[in-house]
């Protein structure tokens, strides 16, 4: 069985896609320790059983709200075999921001573009987008269920590919160098680097993310890391 997480901004059609994939058979519970609803469901593709975990709809993955933290921790700690990131063709700019955060988390992403029915005039070159981002791109229509089989197929493919990651984001020379410097210090702490993607940790240190700073606080290399971040 493979585990696939479903993530996306609010109002992109994530729930509709989840229902289409699972056929409305869902199991609702709570995330451990917090009062955020956890929805899971199952589906099958080509004999392969897929467990779908619906993550809370969020715009970003900071440590500031329970929803975002739950989504982020699931991806970092549970390391799902694939992450279906649902974006909406009417709001790509906003939605891709979350995709970028997922790239930093080194998630194995299937970018899923949900098309609103009745919205014309938007054309997206999926192949080109896939090439630039370094991840598969699947168009769907969540309301009608169009593209669901293809989505399952690609998710299973991604889950089985090992080691392939999306292209990292280019933050420009200065910031890239800074990230590298912090990352190098973090890599010295093997307990940290075995647990989390180091580049992500470095970026979060620069962003002064509360939860990550807590982790860093316990590291023997704490001083060097903070110094490197300036």
């Amino acid at each position: 069985m493979i585990t696939v997480a479903l993530i996306g901004n609010p109002n992109v059609g994530k729930t509709a896609a989840f229902n289409q994939l699972t056929g409305m058979k869902e199991h609702v519970g709570n995330w451990p320790g917090v009062t955020v609803e956890k929805k899971t469901g199952k589906c099958k593709y080509d004999g392969e059983e897929i467990e779908l975990v619906d993550l809370p709809g969020t715009y970003s993955l900071t440590a500031r709200s329970m929803d975002e933290l739950v989504a982020r921790n699931f991806i970092v700690e549970e390391k799902p075999d694939a992450v279906i990131d649902i974006v909406n063709n009417t709001n790509m700019e906003r939605n891709l921001y979350l995709t970028f955060l997922l790239i930093e988390l080194e998630a194995k992403i299937v970018l899923t573009i949900n098309q609103w029915t009745g919205v014309g005039g938007i054309e997206i070159d999926e192949q080109k987008l896939s090439g630039i981002l370094g991840m598969p791109v699947v168009p769907i229509v969540a309301t009608t269920g169009e593209g669901m089989e293809e989505l399952k197929k690609v998710a299973v493919e991604v889950a089985k590919e090992k080691g392939k990651r999306a292209n990292p984001i280019d933050y420009g020379e200065d910031i890239n160098a800074l990230i590298k410097k912090v990352e190098a210090e973090i890599k010295k702490d093997t307990s940290l680097s075995s647990k989390y993607p180091t580049r992500w940790l470095a970026i979060k240190v620069l962003e002064k993310d509360e939860e990550v700073l807590k982790e860093i606080d316990e590291s023997p290399h704490k001083g060097e890391i903070i110094d490197a971040a300036g």
């Binding site: 921001y97 014309g120 054309e123 997206i124 630039i132 910031i175």
Partner: peptide, 23 residues
Amino acid sequence: EVLLAEKRYDEIDEILSKTMKID
């Protein structure tokens, strides 16, 4: 944090300008 966010949006804009056409 703001700087990183801005960079992300810049890159998104660039990618979309290459891959998306709006009537």
